[in-house]
Simulated scan of single mutants.
Amino acid sequence: MLPLQGITVLDLTQVIAGPVAGQILGDMGADVIKIEPLEGDHFRPQMGGAWVPAMNRNKRGLALDLKSEGGKQVMWRLVQRADVFMEAFVPGVMTRLGFGYEAVSAVNPGIVYLSISGYGQTGPYRNRAGYDPCIQAETGIMEATGHQDGPPARVGAAPVDQGTGTYGALGVALALLARHRTGRGQHIDLALYDVGVQLMSHWITNYGRTGEDPQRMGMSHTLIVPLRTFATQTQPLYVACTNDAFWHKLLEGIGLAKLKADPRFRTNADRVANRAVLEPILEAAFAAQTCEELLTRLIPAGVPCAPVKKVSDMLHDPHAIARQSFVEMAYPGLGKVMAANNPLRLSDVPVAVRRLGPHLGEHTREILREIGYRDGEIDALAKAKAVRLHEDEPATPSP
């Protein structure tokens, strides 16, 4: 039995953060109903249509117009039966639609209501829309990223969105645990902004001690030397000497054991102070060797290091394949869709693609039947444009 089996989640979120949270809950067995407007999640066209299939596996799909009277009636029936309600609109939007936390919890006091927004339900920025790069800009991530002599840079992935989605799923699980003990649901106020601040945690601590902002260091690090990428004869190699023991092992591995006794480089503080002298010496040693031969010495010695790979390299890496770190799904109309797998590895919970990401409105009729609507009533709702139907057979994973 999956840990969230029997839990019903109404997922009204779009783009990345909310769908990630819902997908985690779906992977863990919840019946996640992805509720979209009649025109669909506005990211559906992205990546040639592969976006929603990649971000919304293990969910069912319902297309609903929450501004219509019929759509509102459908939503209220769903609310009465649901355990979790997830929305990701600018604060106040759901209240204006009639489905804010106060209204929903009055009908279903046990419901866990997750609100994801850019800046949170309170504070002077609450009414601003927020996306991952905006939050990277506002929380110091962007200013701390990039080359020393260059402008601030955006992190190439979406760490704020992905982190928010993970915290969203965690918050829902904790609130469900609390409900198990108290019988009461609660409202979760989750802001991308707060997650961005959390990602800068060690820099906040450093500023509190020193009053210094982080400097852009490219692939290097302000506080630790060497912690950076080095060019080799083949591909770049990243090395993280976070303590003096690793430093000594690194010197042995790259053929610079003589530097162990050099007082300029004895401790990390010494190495930071003498960075300008040390780094050219290290660069020359790395540049004279291949990445592959360096790895054969550094990895067995326990030195934290890794070759710098492209996504295409990673997807062919034997470790990623062995860990099943990504999944491939045959999706009708699109062919093969690749996506990151759920990184959770619970010994008693096999994570699998039990249901492909839904087509727009794919399960509208199925879901409405479950909450008491007859086919004639469903057809009338569709004719009134309160719901949208997709009459294909439910998608199932390919073997």
Rank of each mutant, 00 (worst) to 15 (best):
L114H: 04
V272M: 03
T364L: 08
K249G: 03
P358L: 14
V337L: 00
N342Q: 10
E292V: 07
Q73E: 15
N268R: 09
R264A: 12
V197M: 14
T8C: 10
I281E: 13
V104E: 08
K258W: 07
A352K: 09
N127K: 12
G123M: 05
S220N: 12
I24T: 06
Q121V: 11
I116K: 00
G120M: 12
A17C: 01
T396N: 07
V351E: 09
V172L: 07
K59H: 01
R77G: 09
Q73I: 01
Q23A: 10
E393R: 11
L237H: 04
D41P: 04
L192T: 13
P226K: 09
K336Y: 00
A231M: 12
G22I: 05
L4I: 08
T205G: 13
N274D: 06
H221L: 10
Q46H: 08
R388S: 10
N341L: 09
R184Y: 03
A178P: 02
G130Q: 08
I16Q: 06
K310F: 02
T232F: 02
H187M: 12
E328I: 10
H359P: 00
L199H: 09
K258F: 05
E293S: 14
Y238E: 10
I16R: 02
A178W: 00
A30M: 03
N127Q: 13
A320N: 14
V155P: 02
N342D: 11
A257P: 06
Q233R: 15
I188K: 04
A257M: 10
A173I: 13
Q23Y: 05
L199P: 00
C241E: 03
D41R: 05
E143S: 11
R271P: 01
K383W: 02
P214Q: 02
K310R: 13
R354H: 10
W247T: 05
G333M: 13
